[in-house]
Simulated assay, not measured.
Amino acid sequence: MDFALTDEQRMLEETLTRLVTDQVSPEQRRLMLGAPAGTRALWRTFSELGLLHMPFSEEVGGLGGDGTDLMIIMQSLGRGLVPEAYLAGLVLPGQLLALTASDKQQARWLAPLLEGDHQLAFAWQEYSARYDALTISSQAIQRDGQWQLNGRKEVVLNLEAAAATLVTARLDNGKLGLFMVPAGVSGTSTRLYRTIDDRPAGDLTLEHVTLPFENCLSEDVSTALAEVLALGRAALCAEAIGAMEVACDQTLAYLKERKQFGLPLSTFQALQHRMVDMHLHLEQSRSMAILAATSLDLPSSERDYKIAAAKAYCGESARFIAEQAIQLHGAMGMTEECYITPYVKYLVMFDHYLGDSDYHLETVSSLLNAA
């Protein structure tokens, strides 16, 4: 297969590389993490460059980017650990809107999202479900021409900055519905926090939340949900590749600089073997990320099999590279001031976003058995 990028894709990659290098240094990133999401100039820059439109089809006002375009964007964001909620606040909720919302709903929520006027969130995880998006205990019932929602969603990324949250809930007929819950609506309460890798998240509790009938985006969202989660997992794999690249590069640079017994650490054969192992995991993960990005248009069972395999392998590789980076940096690798530390935190947490390695290995096993 020809894995070469087109001229347009190379331009996109070069533009993003310059952008991340110029605007997301470690010092700038720390300042961004302390600022409210709505005040960051970087999101406006994303809008001006067309990055917010890129992953969406032309039918809904996007630029018609495919899985490879999204992979390029996410890999560049991963290199700088860009704190903007590109995946959680734009791609996942936006793609769900594109697949399920009516023209009126898209005009109300999707069009402003693509213009950078607001961000959204997607609440699908629940405490007892263990990454299974279809095992949902939240309930939605119709009453007097309105919807009433009850339940609790866990680890909702970008919850604080979201103008509204897309929430999944079980209907009386057993199917899975999708609802738009505006921020601050009566009956909702949140518990906000930061994940280990400093991403803003929160738990969303819904107690007798009453919504207009038009706030229901879909009364059977299972197929669209599977498609969007597959897209999200492929995007995460690409983002992790960018972070793994930097972790390997920074660890090698440290070994060349740090001396022991009068010699650079990079001259010791045992440490060279460790670096080789890190790069092997990186390159094999890169191949799996490419497989995931190019599998999005396949039939659902084949798509889910390949993307689950990619997410499982990338998750294991991310943990390996994180652990080796800490070992090779020594005690200073555990300090907040060390350049490698946020990358280690991200690589550890990456495995848990949208399903960890164990969950996806079980998915691969079940799909093989079914075949």
Results as ranks from 00 to 15, higher is better:
F3S: 09
D7P: 14
R10W: 05
M11L: 15
E13A: 15
E14F: 06
L16I: 13
R18H: 12
V20S: 04
P26T: 08
Q28G: 14
Q28M: 11
A35L: 14
P36W: 05
T39H: 12
L42Y: 11
W43K: 13
F46C: 07
G50M: 05
L51P: 09
P55T: 13
E58T: 15
E58H: 14
E58V: 15
E59Y: 09
G61Y: 08
I73R: 07
M74K: 07
R79A: 04
L81W: 01
V82S: 09
P83F: 05
A85S: 13
A88N: 11
L92I: 14
L96M: 15
A98H: 11
A101H: 02
S102L: 02
S102Y: 05
D103L: 15
A107I: 13
R108W: 10
P112R: 00
L114A: 10
A121Q: 01
Y131Q: 14
D132I: 06
I136T: 11
S138K: 00
Q139D: 07
I141T: 11
D144Y: 06
Q148P: 02
G151T: 03
K153M: 10
L157M: 14
A161F: 02
A164I: 11
T168E: 11
L171S: 06
G177Y: 07
L178W: 02
L178H: 04
V181D: 00
P182Q: 03
S186F: 00
G187N: 00
S189N: 06
R191K: 11
I196F: 14
L206W: 00
T210D: 00
N215A: 10
S218R: 00
D220I: 03
S222K: 12
A226K: 12
E227I: 07
V228K: 04
V228Y: 04
A234D: 03
C237F: 02
A238D: 01
I241F: 03
K256E: 15
F261D: 15
L263W: 12
L271H: 09
H279S: 13
H279F: 13
H281Q: 13
A308C: 02
I321W: 01
A331C: 04
T335G: 07
C338R: 04
V344D: 02
K345W: 12
V348Y: 14
Y353P: 01
Y353T: 10
Y353E: 11
G355R: 06
S357N: 08
V364N: 01
S365T: 14
S366I: 12
A370D: 13
